[in-house]
Design a protein around this nucleic acid. Structure first.
Lengths: 253, 253
DNA sequence: TAAGATATTATCATTATGGATATATGTAAA
DNA sequence: TTTACATATATCCATAATGATAATATCTTA
Protein backbone atom coordinates (compact mmCIF):
# COMPACT_ATOMS: atom_id res chain seq x y z
CA UNK A 1 0.00 0.00 0.00
CA UNK A 2 1.50 3.31 -1.08
CA UNK A 3 0.19 6.84 -1.31
CA UNK A 4 0.20 7.85 -4.97
CA UNK A 5 0.14 11.31 -6.57
CA UNK A 6 -3.52 11.12 -7.51
CA UNK A 7 -4.48 10.44 -3.94
CA UNK A 8 -5.74 6.86 -4.06
CA UNK A 9 -4.64 4.17 -1.72
CA UNK A 10 -3.65 1.36 -4.00
CA UNK A 11 -2.87 -2.27 -3.72
CA UNK A 12 -0.74 -4.57 -5.90
CA UNK A 13 -2.45 -3.40 -9.07
CA UNK A 14 -0.86 0.03 -9.10
CA UNK A 15 -1.06 1.79 -12.43
CA UNK A 16 2.66 2.41 -12.49
CA UNK A 17 3.84 -1.06 -11.58
CA UNK A 18 3.47 -2.35 -15.14
CA UNK A 19 5.39 -1.49 -18.27
CA UNK A 20 3.10 0.18 -20.71
CA UNK A 21 2.87 -0.50 -24.44
CA UNK A 22 2.87 2.35 -26.93
CA UNK A 23 -0.57 3.14 -28.32
CA UNK A 24 -1.38 4.20 -31.85
CA UNK A 25 -4.41 4.57 -34.05
CA UNK A 26 -4.45 3.44 -37.69
CA UNK A 27 -6.99 4.42 -40.29
CA UNK A 28 -8.46 2.12 -42.92
CA UNK A 29 -9.72 4.88 -45.19
CA UNK A 30 -11.92 3.33 -47.85
CA UNK A 31 -13.63 4.53 -50.99
CA UNK A 32 -15.18 3.00 -54.10
CA UNK A 33 -13.55 3.88 -57.39
CA UNK A 34 -14.59 2.43 -60.77
CA UNK A 35 -16.49 -0.36 -59.16
CA UNK A 36 -13.84 -1.53 -56.71
CA UNK A 37 -12.97 -0.88 -53.07
CA UNK A 38 -9.81 1.18 -52.64
CA UNK A 39 -7.80 2.12 -49.55
CA UNK A 40 -5.66 5.18 -48.91
CA UNK A 41 -2.02 4.37 -48.18
CA UNK A 42 1.13 6.29 -47.38
CA UNK A 43 4.60 5.23 -48.41
CA UNK A 44 7.04 4.55 -45.57
CA UNK A 45 10.37 6.30 -46.02
CA UNK A 46 12.21 4.80 -43.06
CA UNK A 47 12.74 1.50 -41.34
CA UNK A 48 11.06 -0.72 -40.45
CA UNK A 49 9.18 -1.58 -43.63
CA UNK A 50 10.94 1.14 -45.60
CA UNK A 51 9.42 1.35 -49.06
CA UNK A 52 6.32 -0.52 -47.98
CA UNK A 53 2.86 0.97 -47.85
CA UNK A 54 1.06 1.69 -44.62
CA UNK A 55 -2.24 2.98 -43.32
CA UNK A 56 -2.24 6.57 -42.09
CA UNK A 57 -1.69 6.42 -38.34
CA UNK A 58 -0.20 8.10 -35.33
CA UNK A 59 0.41 7.90 -31.60
CA UNK A 60 -2.42 8.44 -29.15
CA UNK A 61 -1.64 11.40 -26.95
CA UNK A 62 -1.93 11.04 -23.22
CA UNK A 63 -4.75 13.57 -22.92
CA UNK A 64 -6.63 12.60 -26.06
CA UNK A 65 -9.41 10.05 -26.48
CA UNK A 66 -9.04 7.31 -29.06
CA UNK A 67 -11.71 8.82 -31.27
CA UNK A 68 -10.03 12.22 -31.11
CA UNK A 69 -6.74 10.64 -32.11
CA UNK A 70 -8.40 8.95 -35.06
CA UNK A 71 -9.97 12.22 -36.19
CA UNK A 72 -6.63 13.98 -35.83
CA UNK A 73 -5.00 11.38 -38.07
CA UNK A 74 -7.84 11.79 -40.54
CA UNK A 75 -7.19 15.53 -40.62
CA UNK A 76 -3.40 15.70 -40.46
CA UNK A 77 -2.32 12.55 -42.27
CA UNK A 78 -5.19 12.00 -44.67
CA UNK A 79 -5.97 15.71 -45.18
CA UNK A 80 -9.70 15.16 -44.73
CA UNK A 81 -11.85 17.48 -42.63
CA UNK A 82 -14.48 14.89 -41.85
CA UNK A 83 -15.78 11.46 -42.75
CA UNK A 84 -17.84 8.63 -41.41
CA UNK A 85 -15.43 7.02 -38.95
CA UNK A 86 -15.90 4.12 -36.59
CA UNK A 87 -13.73 1.95 -34.39
CA UNK A 88 -12.86 -1.37 -36.01
CA UNK A 89 -10.63 -3.62 -33.91
CA UNK A 90 -7.57 -3.41 -31.70
CA UNK A 91 -4.42 -5.22 -32.79
CA UNK A 92 -1.93 -6.06 -30.08
CA UNK A 93 0.15 -9.07 -31.07
CA UNK A 94 3.50 -8.88 -29.32
CA UNK A 95 5.70 -8.84 -32.41
CA UNK A 96 3.58 -6.72 -34.73
CA UNK A 97 6.04 -3.80 -34.62
CA UNK A 98 9.73 -4.74 -34.56
CA UNK A 99 10.62 -1.51 -32.73
CA UNK A 100 8.82 -2.55 -29.57
CA UNK A 101 5.43 -3.23 -28.09
CA UNK A 102 2.86 -1.19 -29.96
CA UNK A 103 -0.87 -1.73 -29.66
CA UNK A 104 -2.94 -0.07 -32.36
CA UNK A 105 -6.62 0.75 -32.30
CA UNK A 106 -7.78 0.51 -35.90
CA UNK A 107 -10.57 2.71 -37.22
CA UNK A 108 -12.21 2.62 -40.60
CA UNK A 109 -13.42 5.68 -42.43
CA UNK A 110 -15.58 6.03 -45.52
CA UNK A 111 -15.53 8.82 -48.09
CA UNK A 112 -16.63 9.16 -51.68
CA UNK A 113 -14.09 9.36 -54.44
CA UNK A 114 -14.62 13.07 -55.00
CA UNK A 115 -13.83 14.03 -51.39
CA UNK A 116 -10.69 11.96 -51.62
CA UNK A 117 -9.41 13.75 -54.69
CA UNK A 118 -8.62 16.87 -52.68
CA UNK A 119 -6.78 14.83 -50.07
CA UNK A 120 -4.54 13.21 -52.64
CA UNK A 121 -3.61 16.58 -54.10
CA UNK A 122 -2.52 17.79 -50.68
CA UNK A 123 0.12 15.13 -50.33
CA UNK A 124 2.07 13.28 -52.97
CA UNK A 125 2.97 10.41 -50.68
CA UNK A 126 -0.63 9.23 -50.59
CA UNK A 127 -1.83 6.57 -52.99
CA UNK A 128 -5.06 4.71 -53.59
CA UNK A 129 -4.68 0.94 -53.74
CA UNK A 130 -7.34 -1.43 -55.04
CA UNK A 131 -8.36 -3.96 -52.41
CA UNK A 132 -8.33 -7.53 -53.68
CA UNK A 133 -10.21 -9.86 -51.36
CA UNK A 134 -9.13 -13.52 -51.56
CA UNK A 135 -11.92 -14.90 -49.37
CA UNK A 136 -15.69 -15.18 -49.90
CA UNK A 137 -18.46 -13.68 -47.82
CA UNK A 138 -17.48 -12.74 -44.31
CA UNK A 139 -14.83 -15.38 -43.87
CA UNK A 140 -12.18 -12.79 -43.09
CA UNK A 141 -8.42 -12.70 -43.39
CA UNK A 142 -5.79 -10.42 -44.93
CA UNK A 143 -6.32 -8.75 -48.31
CA UNK A 144 -4.00 -7.72 -51.11
CA UNK A 145 -3.53 -4.24 -52.49
CA UNK A 146 -2.91 -3.48 -56.14
CA UNK A 147 -1.80 -0.31 -57.86
CA UNK A 148 -3.66 1.06 -60.88
CA UNK A 149 -1.16 -0.81 -63.04
CA UNK A 150 -1.97 -4.08 -61.31
CA UNK A 151 1.27 -4.30 -59.34
CA UNK A 152 1.08 -5.65 -55.79
CA UNK A 153 1.67 -2.98 -53.14
CA UNK A 154 3.55 -4.53 -50.20
CA UNK A 155 1.94 -3.59 -46.90
CA UNK A 156 3.75 -2.74 -43.69
CA UNK A 157 3.11 -4.28 -40.25
CA UNK A 158 -0.22 -6.15 -39.98
CA UNK A 159 -2.01 -3.64 -42.16
CA UNK A 160 -3.22 -6.30 -44.59
CA UNK A 161 -5.08 -7.84 -41.65
CA UNK A 162 -6.52 -4.49 -40.62
CA UNK A 163 -7.83 -3.84 -44.11
CA UNK A 164 -9.23 -7.37 -44.26
CA UNK A 165 -11.06 -6.75 -41.02
CA UNK A 166 -12.44 -3.48 -42.43
CA UNK A 167 -13.82 -5.24 -45.50
CA UNK A 168 -15.34 -7.96 -43.34
CA UNK A 169 -16.98 -5.37 -41.09
CA UNK A 170 -18.28 -3.42 -44.06
CA UNK A 171 -19.82 -6.53 -45.61
CA UNK A 172 -21.50 -7.35 -42.35
CA UNK A 173 -22.96 -3.90 -41.79
CA UNK A 174 -24.00 -3.21 -45.35
CA UNK A 175 -27.62 -4.26 -45.27
CA UNK A 176 -28.63 -3.07 -41.83
CA UNK A 177 -26.77 0.20 -41.58
CA UNK A 178 -26.26 3.17 -43.86
CA UNK A 179 -22.56 2.56 -44.62
CA UNK A 180 -23.26 2.30 -48.35
CA UNK A 181 -24.36 5.93 -48.54
CA UNK A 182 -21.14 7.14 -46.96
CA UNK A 183 -19.25 6.07 -50.05
CA UNK A 184 -21.40 8.17 -52.39
CA UNK A 185 -21.88 11.89 -52.93
CA UNK A 186 -24.91 13.61 -51.40
CA UNK A 187 -27.03 12.84 -54.43
CA UNK A 188 -26.71 9.55 -56.26
CA UNK A 189 -28.59 7.19 -58.53
CA UNK A 190 -29.81 3.75 -57.58
CA UNK A 191 -27.35 2.28 -60.06
CA UNK A 192 -24.47 3.99 -58.27
CA UNK A 193 -25.74 2.68 -54.95
CA UNK A 194 -25.91 -0.81 -56.40
CA UNK A 195 -22.37 -0.52 -57.75
CA UNK A 196 -21.15 0.41 -54.28
CA UNK A 197 -22.90 -2.58 -52.75
CA UNK A 198 -21.48 -4.88 -55.39
CA UNK A 199 -17.98 -3.51 -54.83
CA UNK A 200 -18.22 -4.13 -51.11
CA UNK A 201 -19.76 -7.58 -51.34
CA UNK A 202 -17.76 -8.71 -54.34
CA UNK A 203 -20.86 -10.12 -56.00
CA UNK A 204 -23.41 -9.13 -58.62
CA UNK A 205 -26.89 -8.20 -57.39
CA UNK A 206 -30.31 -8.49 -58.94
CA UNK A 207 -31.38 -5.06 -60.12
CA UNK A 208 -35.16 -4.95 -59.54
CA UNK A 209 -34.81 -6.70 -56.20
CA UNK A 210 -32.11 -4.25 -55.13
CA UNK A 211 -34.31 -1.30 -56.09
CA UNK A 212 -37.27 -2.63 -54.15
CA UNK A 213 -35.19 -3.40 -51.10
CA UNK A 214 -33.59 0.04 -50.99
CA UNK A 215 -36.78 1.96 -51.66
CA UNK A 216 -38.74 -0.11 -49.12
CA UNK A 217 -36.29 0.85 -46.40
CA UNK A 218 -37.79 4.34 -46.55
CA UNK A 219 -34.48 6.12 -46.16
CA UNK A 220 -34.22 7.36 -49.76
CA UNK A 221 -35.68 10.65 -50.89
CA UNK A 222 -36.23 11.17 -54.62
CA UNK A 223 -34.97 14.68 -55.34
CA UNK A 224 -36.77 15.10 -58.67
CA UNK A 225 -33.44 15.95 -60.30
CA UNK A 226 -31.72 13.70 -62.82
CA UNK A 227 -28.14 12.73 -63.41
CA UNK A 228 -26.42 14.74 -66.16
CA UNK A 229 -23.94 13.86 -68.83
CA UNK A 230 -25.40 10.46 -69.60
CA UNK A 231 -25.75 9.44 -73.23
CA UNK A 232 -28.90 7.53 -72.36
CA UNK A 233 -31.97 8.06 -70.24
CA UNK A 234 -30.70 9.78 -67.06
CA UNK A 235 -31.66 8.23 -63.75
CA UNK A 236 -33.35 9.93 -60.83
CA UNK A 237 -31.06 11.34 -58.16
CA UNK A 238 -31.79 10.24 -54.60
CA UNK A 239 -30.71 11.60 -51.28
CA UNK A 240 -30.20 9.61 -48.07
CA UNK A 241 -32.59 10.57 -45.28
CA UNK A 242 -31.03 10.35 -41.85
CA UNK A 243 -33.22 8.20 -39.64
CA UNK A 244 -34.53 9.84 -36.49
CA UNK A 245 -31.64 9.51 -34.08
CA UNK A 246 -33.06 6.51 -32.23
CA UNK A 247 -29.50 5.36 -31.72
CA UNK A 248 -28.01 7.16 -28.72
CA UNK A 249 -24.64 8.70 -29.37
CA UNK A 250 -21.93 6.13 -28.96
CA UNK A 251 -19.64 6.75 -26.02
CA UNK A 252 -16.36 8.30 -27.00
CA UNK A 253 -13.82 5.54 -27.31
CA UNK B 1 17.66 11.25 -35.80
CA UNK B 2 18.96 9.12 -32.94
CA UNK B 3 20.24 5.58 -32.72
CA UNK B 4 17.84 3.58 -30.54
CA UNK B 5 18.36 0.32 -28.65
CA UNK B 6 16.50 -1.75 -31.17
CA UNK B 7 18.71 -0.53 -33.97
CA UNK B 8 16.34 1.56 -36.05
CA UNK B 9 17.09 5.07 -37.20
CA UNK B 10 14.04 7.00 -36.19
CA UNK B 11 12.56 10.35 -36.90
CA UNK B 12 10.20 12.52 -34.88
CA UNK B 13 7.80 9.65 -34.27
CA UNK B 14 10.06 7.82 -31.84
CA UNK B 15 8.24 5.26 -29.74
CA UNK B 16 9.63 6.72 -26.55
CA UNK B 17 8.82 10.35 -27.22
CA UNK B 18 5.19 9.99 -26.13
CA UNK B 19 3.67 9.30 -22.74
CA UNK B 20 1.99 5.97 -22.78
CA UNK B 21 -1.43 5.14 -21.30
CA UNK B 22 -1.90 2.10 -19.10
CA UNK B 23 -3.55 -0.82 -20.88
CA UNK B 24 -6.02 -3.24 -19.39
CA UNK B 25 -8.44 -5.87 -20.57
CA UNK B 26 -11.95 -6.23 -19.15
CA UNK B 27 -14.20 -9.21 -19.53
CA UNK B 28 -17.95 -9.09 -20.11
CA UNK B 29 -18.63 -12.66 -19.07
CA UNK B 30 -22.20 -13.52 -19.97
CA UNK B 31 -24.55 -16.39 -19.33
CA UNK B 32 -28.28 -17.06 -19.48
CA UNK B 33 -29.95 -17.98 -16.24
CA UNK B 34 -33.70 -18.53 -15.79
CA UNK B 35 -34.47 -16.84 -19.07
CA UNK B 36 -32.39 -13.69 -18.58
CA UNK B 37 -28.90 -12.55 -19.53
CA UNK B 38 -26.56 -12.31 -16.56
CA UNK B 39 -23.03 -10.95 -16.23
CA UNK B 40 -20.27 -11.96 -13.84
CA UNK B 41 -19.08 -9.14 -11.57
CA UNK B 42 -16.51 -8.67 -8.83
CA UNK B 43 -16.92 -6.37 -5.90
CA UNK B 44 -14.33 -3.59 -5.61
CA UNK B 45 -12.80 -3.33 -2.16
CA UNK B 46 -10.72 -0.19 -2.70
CA UNK B 47 -10.96 3.23 -4.25
CA UNK B 48 -11.93 4.36 -6.75
CA UNK B 49 -15.47 2.97 -6.90
CA UNK B 50 -15.07 1.13 -3.62
CA UNK B 51 -18.13 -1.02 -3.00
CA UNK B 52 -19.18 -0.83 -6.64
CA UNK B 53 -19.26 -3.80 -8.97
CA UNK B 54 -16.82 -4.24 -11.82
CA UNK B 55 -16.04 -6.57 -14.69
CA UNK B 56 -13.14 -8.96 -14.12
CA UNK B 57 -10.08 -7.29 -15.61
CA UNK B 58 -6.35 -6.80 -15.40
CA UNK B 59 -3.34 -5.09 -16.85
CA UNK B 60 -1.90 -6.20 -20.19
CA UNK B 61 1.67 -7.37 -19.68
CA UNK B 62 4.34 -6.01 -21.92
CA UNK B 63 5.14 -9.37 -23.48
CA UNK B 64 1.60 -10.65 -23.71
CA UNK B 65 -0.88 -10.32 -26.56
CA UNK B 66 -4.31 -8.83 -25.87
CA UNK B 67 -6.01 -12.16 -26.40
CA UNK B 68 -3.59 -13.84 -24.01
CA UNK B 69 -4.30 -11.20 -21.40
CA UNK B 70 -8.03 -11.75 -21.79
CA UNK B 71 -7.62 -15.50 -21.38
CA UNK B 72 -5.45 -14.97 -18.32
CA UNK B 73 -8.16 -12.83 -16.74
CA UNK B 74 -10.70 -15.50 -17.63
CA UNK B 75 -8.58 -18.08 -15.84
CA UNK B 76 -7.28 -16.13 -12.82
CA UNK B 77 -10.10 -13.71 -12.11
CA UNK B 78 -13.13 -15.62 -13.37
CA UNK B 79 -11.77 -19.09 -12.52
CA UNK B 80 -12.76 -20.51 -15.88
CA UNK B 81 -10.48 -22.76 -17.92
CA UNK B 82 -11.99 -21.87 -21.25
CA UNK B 83 -14.91 -20.22 -22.95
CA UNK B 84 -15.94 -18.65 -26.21
CA UNK B 85 -14.16 -15.31 -26.07
CA UNK B 86 -13.97 -12.50 -28.61
CA UNK B 87 -12.76 -8.93 -28.69
CA UNK B 88 -15.58 -6.42 -28.27
CA UNK B 89 -14.46 -2.79 -28.30
CA UNK B 90 -11.72 -0.58 -26.90
CA UNK B 91 -12.67 2.14 -24.44
CA UNK B 92 -10.26 5.01 -24.12
CA UNK B 93 -12.06 8.14 -22.95
CA UNK B 94 -9.62 10.37 -21.10
CA UNK B 95 -11.44 10.48 -17.79
CA UNK B 96 -12.76 6.93 -17.60
CA UNK B 97 -10.41 6.01 -14.73
CA UNK B 98 -9.80 8.74 -12.10
CA UNK B 99 -6.37 7.30 -11.27
CA UNK B 100 -4.94 8.22 -14.66
CA UNK B 101 -5.08 7.42 -18.32
CA UNK B 102 -6.19 3.83 -18.73
CA UNK B 103 -7.30 2.37 -22.05
CA UNK B 104 -9.16 -0.92 -21.80
CA UNK B 105 -9.72 -3.51 -24.47
CA UNK B 106 -13.04 -5.14 -23.66
CA UNK B 107 -13.70 -8.78 -24.49
CA UNK B 108 -16.90 -10.70 -24.11
CA UNK B 109 -17.06 -14.34 -23.15
CA UNK B 110 -19.95 -16.79 -23.17
CA UNK B 111 -20.50 -19.79 -20.92
CA UNK B 112 -23.49 -21.83 -19.85
CA UNK B 113 -24.85 -21.55 -16.34
CA UNK B 114 -23.44 -24.90 -15.25
CA UNK B 115 -19.85 -24.02 -16.17
CA UNK B 116 -20.23 -20.81 -14.24
CA UNK B 117 -21.34 -22.56 -11.06
CA UNK B 118 -17.84 -23.89 -10.41
CA UNK B 119 -16.34 -20.44 -10.96
CA UNK B 120 -18.61 -18.86 -8.39
CA UNK B 121 -17.72 -21.46 -5.80
CA UNK B 122 -14.02 -20.71 -6.29
CA UNK B 123 -14.42 -17.09 -5.24
CA UNK B 124 -16.97 -15.49 -2.95
CA UNK B 125 -16.40 -12.01 -4.33
CA UNK B 126 -18.00 -12.99 -7.64
CA UNK B 127 -21.67 -12.36 -8.26
CA UNK B 128 -24.07 -12.81 -11.14
CA UNK B 129 -26.10 -9.75 -11.99
CA UNK B 130 -29.15 -9.76 -14.24
CA UNK B 131 -28.72 -7.46 -17.22
CA UNK B 132 -31.64 -5.10 -17.73
CA UNK B 133 -31.57 -3.52 -21.17
CA UNK B 134 -33.38 -0.18 -21.40
CA UNK B 135 -33.18 0.15 -25.18
CA UNK B 136 -34.83 -1.80 -28.00
CA UNK B 137 -33.18 -3.77 -30.77
CA UNK B 138 -29.61 -2.81 -31.49
CA UNK B 139 -29.93 0.81 -30.46
CA UNK B 140 -27.15 0.47 -27.89
CA UNK B 141 -26.25 2.32 -24.72
CA UNK B 142 -25.51 1.43 -21.10
CA UNK B 143 -27.45 -1.28 -19.26
CA UNK B 144 -28.46 -1.77 -15.65
CA UNK B 145 -27.55 -4.70 -13.42
CA UNK B 146 -29.86 -6.15 -10.82
CA UNK B 147 -29.21 -8.61 -8.02
CA UNK B 148 -31.41 -11.66 -7.52
CA UNK B 149 -33.41 -9.61 -5.05
CA UNK B 150 -34.02 -6.91 -7.64
CA UNK B 151 -31.65 -4.33 -6.14
CA UNK B 152 -29.63 -2.21 -8.55
CA UNK B 153 -25.92 -3.11 -8.54
CA UNK B 154 -23.87 0.08 -9.06
CA UNK B 155 -21.21 -0.42 -11.70
CA UNK B 156 -17.69 0.97 -11.60
CA UNK B 157 -15.95 2.95 -14.37
CA UNK B 158 -17.69 2.71 -17.77
CA UNK B 159 -18.59 -0.92 -17.26
CA UNK B 160 -22.29 -0.30 -17.86
CA UNK B 161 -21.31 0.89 -21.34
CA UNK B 162 -19.11 -2.15 -21.91
CA UNK B 163 -21.92 -4.51 -20.96
CA UNK B 164 -24.32 -2.58 -23.18
CA UNK B 165 -21.93 -2.96 -26.07
CA UNK B 166 -21.70 -6.70 -25.37
CA UNK B 167 -25.48 -7.09 -25.49
CA UNK B 168 -25.66 -5.08 -28.70
CA UNK B 169 -22.95 -7.22 -30.29
CA UNK B 170 -24.63 -10.41 -29.17
CA UNK B 171 -27.97 -9.33 -30.61
CA UNK B 172 -26.30 -8.51 -33.90
CA UNK B 173 -24.43 -11.78 -34.20
CA UNK B 174 -27.20 -14.04 -32.99
CA UNK B 175 -28.72 -15.13 -36.25
CA UNK B 176 -25.65 -15.46 -38.41
CA UNK B 177 -23.17 -16.93 -36.00
CA UNK B 178 -23.28 -19.72 -33.44
CA UNK B 179 -23.11 -17.52 -30.32
CA UNK B 180 -26.41 -18.93 -29.08
CA UNK B 181 -24.95 -22.39 -28.66
CA UNK B 182 -22.10 -21.10 -26.50
CA UNK B 183 -24.59 -20.28 -23.78
CA UNK B 184 -25.94 -23.83 -23.59
CA UNK B 185 -24.51 -27.17 -22.47
CA UNK B 186 -23.28 -29.61 -25.11
CA UNK B 187 -26.71 -31.14 -25.50
CA UNK B 188 -29.83 -29.01 -25.36
CA UNK B 189 -33.45 -28.91 -26.47
CA UNK B 190 -34.91 -26.60 -29.06
CA UNK B 191 -36.93 -24.95 -26.32
CA UNK B 192 -33.75 -24.16 -24.38
CA UNK B 193 -32.21 -22.72 -27.53
CA UNK B 194 -35.25 -20.57 -28.08
CA UNK B 195 -35.15 -19.35 -24.48
CA UNK B 196 -31.54 -18.28 -24.99
CA UNK B 197 -32.43 -16.39 -28.14
CA UNK B 198 -35.35 -14.71 -26.41
CA UNK B 199 -33.16 -13.73 -23.46
CA UNK B 200 -30.60 -12.15 -25.77
CA UNK B 201 -33.08 -10.37 -28.00
CA UNK B 202 -35.47 -9.39 -25.25
CA UNK B 203 -38.46 -10.50 -27.32
CA UNK B 204 -40.75 -13.50 -27.66
CA UNK B 205 -40.28 -15.67 -30.75
CA UNK B 206 -42.67 -17.77 -32.78
CA UNK B 207 -42.09 -21.41 -31.91
CA UNK B 208 -42.69 -23.30 -35.20
CA UNK B 209 -40.84 -20.63 -37.17
CA UNK B 210 -37.91 -20.76 -34.76
CA UNK B 211 -37.74 -24.57 -35.04
CA UNK B 212 -37.76 -24.47 -38.82
CA UNK B 213 -35.17 -21.76 -39.00
CA UNK B 214 -32.75 -23.54 -36.66
CA UNK B 215 -33.19 -26.98 -38.23
CA UNK B 216 -32.86 -25.58 -41.75
CA UNK B 217 -29.47 -24.12 -40.90
CA UNK B 218 -28.16 -27.68 -40.85
CA UNK B 219 -25.92 -27.16 -37.83
CA UNK B 220 -28.05 -29.16 -35.39
CA UNK B 221 -27.62 -32.88 -34.88
CA UNK B 222 -30.44 -34.81 -33.21
CA UNK B 223 -28.74 -37.11 -30.70
CA UNK B 224 -31.68 -39.50 -30.26
CA UNK B 225 -31.55 -38.92 -26.52
CA UNK B 226 -34.25 -37.08 -24.61
CA UNK B 227 -34.21 -34.60 -21.78
CA UNK B 228 -34.78 -36.16 -18.35
CA UNK B 229 -36.65 -35.07 -15.29
CA UNK B 230 -39.51 -33.42 -17.14
CA UNK B 231 -43.02 -34.01 -15.90
CA UNK B 232 -44.27 -33.90 -19.46
CA UNK B 233 -43.19 -35.25 -22.80
CA UNK B 234 -39.37 -34.87 -22.88
CA UNK B 235 -37.91 -33.07 -25.87
CA UNK B 236 -35.19 -34.36 -28.16
CA UNK B 237 -31.64 -33.35 -27.23
CA UNK B 238 -29.62 -31.72 -30.01
CA UNK B 239 -25.94 -31.09 -30.42
CA UNK B 240 -24.33 -28.21 -32.31
CA UNK B 241 -22.30 -29.32 -35.32
CA UNK B 242 -19.23 -27.18 -35.90
CA UNK B 243 -19.25 -25.94 -39.47
CA UNK B 244 -16.23 -26.85 -41.56
CA UNK B 245 -13.63 -24.27 -40.62
CA UNK B 246 -14.19 -22.06 -43.65
CA UNK B 247 -13.32 -19.11 -41.42
CA UNK B 248 -9.54 -18.74 -41.18
CA UNK B 249 -8.27 -18.35 -37.63
CA UNK B 250 -8.54 -14.75 -36.56
CA UNK B 251 -5.19 -13.06 -36.03
CA UNK B 252 -4.16 -12.83 -32.42
CA UNK B 253 -5.17 -9.43 -31.15
C1' DT C 1 -37.90 11.04 -86.52
C1' DA C 2 -35.70 6.70 -85.48
C1' DA C 3 -32.15 3.97 -83.03
C1' DG C 4 -29.78 2.87 -78.99
C1' DA C 5 -29.15 2.55 -74.22
C1' DT C 6 -30.60 2.38 -69.83
C1' DA C 7 -34.24 3.62 -66.27
C1' DT C 8 -38.34 2.12 -64.40
C1' DT C 9 -42.25 -0.86 -63.75
C1' DA C 10 -44.78 -5.24 -64.01
C1' DT C 11 -45.33 -10.14 -63.67
C1' DC C 12 -44.67 -14.66 -61.96
C1' DA C 13 -42.59 -18.43 -59.43
C1' DT C 14 -40.20 -19.53 -55.30
C1' DT C 15 -39.03 -19.25 -50.76
C1' DA C 16 -39.11 -17.48 -46.01
C1' DT C 17 -42.02 -16.14 -42.15
C1' DG C 18 -45.97 -15.53 -38.74
C1' DG C 19 -49.80 -17.34 -36.68
C1' DA C 20 -52.89 -20.82 -35.49
C1' DT C 21 -54.20 -25.50 -34.98
C1' DA C 22 -53.99 -30.44 -34.88
C1' DT C 23 -51.59 -34.63 -33.51
C1' DA C 24 -48.09 -37.37 -30.86
C1' DT C 25 -45.80 -38.84 -26.75
C1' DG C 26 -43.91 -38.73 -22.56
C1' DT C 27 -45.05 -38.41 -17.01
C1' DA C 28 -48.00 -38.65 -13.16
C1' DA C 29 -52.18 -39.39 -10.92
C1' DA C 30 -56.46 -42.12 -10.52
C1' DT D 1 -54.24 -50.09 -16.68
C1' DT D 2 -56.23 -46.01 -17.88
C1' DT D 3 -56.79 -41.11 -18.14
C1' DA D 4 -55.48 -36.29 -17.65
C1' DC D 5 -52.07 -33.19 -18.72
C1' DA D 6 -48.31 -30.60 -20.53
C1' DT D 7 -45.43 -30.01 -23.94
C1' DA D 8 -43.13 -31.67 -28.28
C1' DT D 9 -43.76 -32.07 -33.06
C1' DA D 10 -46.16 -31.70 -37.53
C1' DT D 11 -49.50 -29.49 -40.67
C1' DC D 12 -51.92 -25.75 -42.85
C1' DC D 13 -52.74 -21.32 -44.64
C1' DA D 14 -52.03 -16.43 -45.35
C1' DT D 15 -48.63 -13.06 -46.10
C1' DA D 16 -44.28 -10.98 -47.06
C1' DA D 17 -39.67 -11.04 -49.08
C1' DT D 18 -36.75 -12.49 -52.97
C1' DG D 19 -34.96 -13.90 -57.70
C1' DA D 20 -35.48 -14.00 -62.38
C1' DT D 21 -37.36 -12.31 -66.62
C1' DA D 22 -39.81 -9.48 -69.48
C1' DA D 23 -42.26 -5.26 -70.77
C1' DT D 24 -42.55 -0.34 -71.05
C1' DA D 25 -40.81 4.49 -70.62
C1' DT D 26 -37.60 8.15 -71.42
C1' DC D 27 -33.60 10.30 -72.39
C1' DT D 28 -29.52 11.37 -75.96
C1' DT D 29 -27.60 11.28 -80.32
C1' DA D 30 -27.61 10.58 -85.22
Amino acid sequence: MTQTPHGYQENGEDLRSYDRPSMTVDLALLTVRSGALHALLTRRDSRPFEGHWALPGGFVRIDESLGAAARRVLRDKAHLAEAFIEQLYTFGAVGRDPRGRVVTVAYYALVDEEQLAAARQASDSLVLGEIVVPWPGEAGGPVQLHSDEGAVLPLAFDHADILGMAVKRLRGKLDYSPVGFELLPKRFTLRQLQEVHEAILGTKLNKPAFRRRMLDKGVLHATGARETGATYRPAELYRFIERSAATPMEKEG
